[in-house]
Simulated assay, not measured.
Amino acid sequence: MMPLLDVQHLQKTYTTRFGAHQVQALADVSFTVEPGEYVAIMGESGSGKTTLLNILAALDRSTAGEVLLGGRSLSAIREKQLAAFRRSHLGFVFQDFNLLDTFSLRDNILLPLVLAGERPAAMERKLMPLAQRLGISELLSKYPYEVSGGQKQRAAVARALITAPELILADEPTGALDSRASARLLELFEAINREGQTIVMVTHSVEAASHAGRVLFLRDGRVYHQLFREGESREHQVRRISDVLTGLTQGGEQDA
């Protein structure tokens, strides 16, 4: 089976203002994600996590290497087609929710379908089962500033899922949530993953990463190590992840 996501020798170099210096954010990153996988990406600040996620999201271009989604090279997509491609194939969940305060939760969730030109009746048929499942059906008329952080994030998840994307990309999705809302969101991610949704999540949270089936660790712009959960309890996985992170901060060597 062809991997859903195929990342091949990614490099990204930024040139500072006036070209005085070059900063290598990604040195040589390669990995694949199979359909239905749930992968967490971890690493210290400056390890390349955010740069990698932006390239996977087609929000940035790599300096070298290639990303294929469903066998299609992201670098081959023209700039004017990128927004439509992201809307059709990718779903996004951000730390700061990225909801529009002037839109109700309903309108925020439906926005990708509106932009895609779907009919109102078809949008409603997609919205209501999803809102009920996420526990926000009673909140759809409210505005983001009227609901809690956890409720905002569930609305953001609904917006990500409503287009039935091939891949969900999550950037620190629990970063702005309290422990209770974080736990509920991570349970939700596990549930939608069990139903076949592929998820790639960047996180600094050991607890969040322990819910994933696989954890990739970045160091100095490269994949340094990976852990498979393989039926381990989350408590045991938390300890294993913590051990690898300790090795990262201490500069220890692991086999990738």
Score class of each variant (00 low, 15 high):
8 Q>P: 03
9 H>W: 00
13 T>M: 00
13 T>S: 05
15 T>C: 09
22 Q>N: 12
26 L>W: 01
27 A>C: 10
37 E>D: 14
40 A>K: 00
42 M>K: 08
42 M>C: 12
42 M>G: 08
48 G>R: 05
52 L>H: 10
53 L>H: 09
57 A>D: 05
58 A>F: 10
62 S>T: 04
68 L>P: 00
70 G>M: 07
86 R>M: 02
86 R>I: 02
94 F>I: 09
105 L>T: 08
106 R>H: 15
111 L>N: 01
114 V>W: 02
117 G>N: 09
120 P>G: 02
125 R>L: 07
129 P>W: 09
129 P>E: 06
134 L>H: 04
134 L>M: 02
137 S>D: 15
146 E>D: 11
148 S>T: 05
150 G>M: 07
158 A>E: 09
164 A>F: 03
168 I>F: 08
169 L>W: 02
174 T>A: 01
177 L>C: 02
180 R>M: 11
183 A>F: 07
188 L>I: 14
188 L>D: 01
192 I>T: 06
196 G>S: 13
198 T>Q: 01
203 T>E: 07
207 E>Q: 10
208 A>C: 05
210 S>F: 07
210 S>P: 06
215 V>A: 03
217 F>H: 06
220 D>F: 00
222 R>P: 04
225 H>C: 15
234 R>N: 13
235 E>F: 08
235 E>N: 14
236 H>K: 14
241 I>H: 00
242 S>H: 07
243 D>W: 08
244 V>C: 05
246 T>V: 04
252 G>T: 11
253 E>R: 14
254 Q>W: 14
